[in-house]
């Protein structure tokens, strides 16, 4: 399990570097899918199976739409990939930076207080994400309500921005 966790974390870091380094949106969104898959594996290793699967499902759908829009909007016949010099340079730069951070955090140990709260779930009967869900629907229902209101507001804002043939604000340019 530790090995899988390490692989997933490695894919996350390397993939996020690639997401940032890619100038073309196609590969950005595709790499983001890989990264989200790795992040879900990390979540599963931590015990949040349901959370991970639902996040994977939602993220896949979202990135699919992003990819469809980029193919529809950006007519880039020869998109830059990691094999091009510039992109590779940037990616190497980001990887170097994250390596420095890693060394600084683990070997040198500059950041204090990194003894994380991760071992306090050991004696629970349910999985942690199930417990959090139960809490969300009972004690902190107001939080759920506000979250739902926020999502509704976002939906209406997006519709307001993009509606109509000519009056939609985003098409005024």
């Amino acid at each position: 399990m530790t090995f899988i966790m390490y692989i997933a974390l490695l894919v996350m870091v390397v993939g996020l570097g690639a997401v940032v380094a890619h100038p073309s949106p196609y590969f950005g969104s595709l790499t983001l899918v890989v990264v989200s898959g790795a992040a879900c594996v990390v979540l599963i290793v931590y015990g949040g199976t349901f959370l991970a699967l639902v996040m994977f499902l939602v993220y896949l759908g979202g990135m699919l739409v992003v990819f469809a829009y980029t193919t529809a909007l950006a007519a880039d016949s020869f998109p830059y990939t990691l094999t091009y010099g510039d992109v590779m340079l940037y990616w190497t730069l980001y990887m170097g930076l994250s390596l420095i951070c890693y060394v600084k955090c683990t070997v040198v140990g500059v950041v204090e207080g990194w003894d994380l709260f991760e071992n306090w779930e050991e004696f629970g009967i349910f999985e942690s994400d199930v417990r959090g869900m139960a809490l969300m629907y009972s004690d902190v229902g107001s939080l759920l309500l506000i979250g739902g209101w926020m999502l509704l507001l976002t939906l209406i804002a997006v519709l307001e921005l993009c509606r109509g043939n000519s009056r939609g604000a985003l098409r005024a340019v």
Binding site: E160, A169, L170, A172, V173
Partner: peptide, 16 residues
């Protein structure tokens, strides 16, 4: 999220 449609209320390229 609430202020963005208000910003883009005027249908003008600069507002967008």
């Amino acid at each position: 999220m609430a202020i963005i449609p208000i910003i883009a209320r005027k249908h003008h390229p600069r507002a967008t």
